[in-house]
Write a protein that binds this DNA or RNA. Structure first.
Ligand SMILES: [Mn+2]
Ligand SMILES: [Mn+2]
Ligand SMILES: [Zn+2]
Ligand SMILES: [Zn+2]
Lengths: 152, 152
DNA sequence: CATGGTTTTGTACAAAGTCTAGAAAATGCC
DNA sequence: GGCATTTTCTAGACTTTGTACAAAACCATG
């Protein structure tokens, strides 16, 4: 038995930046406030990996739109609703990934850069039994890489 | 081509708690101070996953042995020397794993518990090409699990 | 036992993230 | 559109993990 990806029953949610963001948010049970729409516009314009800090900087680039607390609340809400995936690879911050399709990551420990591995480029064979009384909440595969010239 | 584990040229270092800890530390180029030996005794007694905070609490259980700064310095030193593996799964803290053999993890997001997956229970097939100019610094596979009864 | 590099320590500092109470905005109903 | 109710937003204090620093303690070597 071979699995090419995580077993994920729930539909993968995706926000289309071409369509009306507000109504798409409403469709997944999120009241589309001004701040949430602005944050969504940044994150869903294309597949991105951003930290809360980066979202805060971009959203407030031309004047104050949203506070720090709102950024954290909104990112947490989007993640809970399945619009974003939290990627934990750097001990100092969480990355929010607007690509919710099944895929894995390269993480360059020198540059802090996080990039996608197309899901076809990696196959997990022989999956372990989950411990009794538990269910899957996602599988993360991270290839930590280093720039070849960097001192180490 | 199938890899059952990360390509790791360097010898896996292991501290045997039955043998003299001090001379084993000296063998890998670490001066065995009192604090370092005490920390090593805790971590290498058996395979463990501990945060800096937990090590601090245990080492100072019966009176002051080491300061917070020394805990962080020592864990970083041991990790750099290959005696410990840093495991990044929880956004709020780093786990130090005294099992340096190739293996992967279950992380229970409800309880914060980190447990080992025996290396035979998981096989990665079809590995991706590393991005040009980079080399591997380790592969992490994390099965995030949830206690089945817990509300989610 | 003197010397000087190494290690430890306490404390200050930094950064990520959480919490809170009041202000503002969104919603639902007339 | 008004108006009451509910939800969200805000600024800033606070918590936690981890690092920086400089002084004190330690320890190998002569
Ligand atoms: Mn760190
Ligand atoms: Mn967090
Ligand atoms: Zn991604
Ligand atoms: Zn482990």
């Amino acid at each position: 038995m071979t699995y090419t990806h995580a077993m994920n029953e729930r539909t993968i949610l995706k926000i289309d930046p071409q369509q009306d963001i507000a109504s798409q948010l409403r469709k997944v049970g999120i009241t589309p406030t001004q701040q949430r729409v602005q944050i969504a516009e940044i994150l869903f314009a294309r597949p991105r990996h951003m930290s809360a800090d980066q979202v805060l900087a971009v959203v407030n680039r031309d004047g104050p739109i949203a506070s720090k607390a709102t950024i954290y609340n909104t990112l947490g809400l989007f993640a809970r609703k399945g619009l974003l995936r939290e990627v934990i690879v750097d001990p100092s911050k969480v990355f929010y990934d607007s690509n919710t399709a099944v895929h894995h990551h390269f993480f360059n420990v020198d540059t802090g850069e996080l990039t996608d591995i197309p899901s076809d480029d990696l196959i997990l064979t022989r999956m372990p039994e989950l411990p009794p009384g538990t269910e899957s909440a996602g599988i993360d595969v991270i290839f930590r890489i280093r720039s070849r010239d960097a001192a180490h």
